[in-house]
Amino acid sequence: MSLGRYVGRRLAVTVPVLFGVTALTFSFVHLLPGDAVDAIVGFRAVSPATEAATRAEYHLDQPVWDQYLLWLRDAITLEFGESPVTGRDVSATIGRRLPATLALGGAAWLLALAIGIPAGIVAAVRAGEPADEVGRLAALAGIATPNFWLGLILLFVFSVRLGWFRVLPPDAPLVSLATAKFLVLPTITLGTASAALVMRLLRSSMRRELDATYVTAARAKGLPERTVILKHVLRNAVLPVVTVAGLQLAFLVDGAVVVEGIFSWPGMGRLLVQSVLQRDYPVIQAIVLVIGIAIVLANLLVDIVYAILDPRIRY
């Protein structure tokens, strides 16, 4: 099968999932107890005129099926209405918050790879030796540390006590030295667990690959051990790690929800928490939709990248 057809088939599976994601997000407001209008306006007492206007704006006077389609149309055009709590345009709010989260998440992801991949390689090659044991315990510790706790402690030690970093984000553009410096602690907080995950996965897949005959064959050819590991083993061992990139993304999003609050970082995660606490449902709905679609598309991308990396996929 050609790569094109593989991608086509993968897309065909993605469409119903996207449909499900939008439907689930749509039904969110309707699953809330009480009338949807109450939910949208945040359970405040409103005048009948406002109620009617809201009803019309969210198409609540239509049958559910039509409501969904109309909502979907609005969502595709990024038309999420206004927040009943803040009165601001939901799309604009999210648009303003998104870059901050992408910056933090991207930095944390790079950190996770930068630590996880070399650590995984070393642990696999030195399996059973002290280096591996230390790595295993470090990874377990990384997985077991609650990120909010880690964040608080880093904040306390390096910002409050040592004063190396600011406690609040600087009033500087996103791409600037001051912002980059501020992001050090949040990045470490967010990236630690991901690094541990990458490391463990890579270690286990490398261990499996190291036993393969092609590794012995590569050594028998007289290749330097570096080439054997970094060219032959690693290329095969990263494949299973690539498949969890979607999981990684979900993991980072979860982390961002917590970490952004600790470091007062104006991203989507913090917005989500604020919105939940304020019962700002249109904003919650929009954020959940954006996250859901991002993860579905990320998984699609992962599968395509996997197919490119692994020639055997294209049967």
Partner: peptide, 16 residues
């Protein structure tokens, strides 16, 4: 000194 392995399919790296 070179080697020929029993299972040629396994002795070749699948991704190169």
């Amino acid at each position: 000194i070179a080697m020929v392995f029993q299972d040629a399919g396994a002795a070749l790296n699948p991704v190169y």
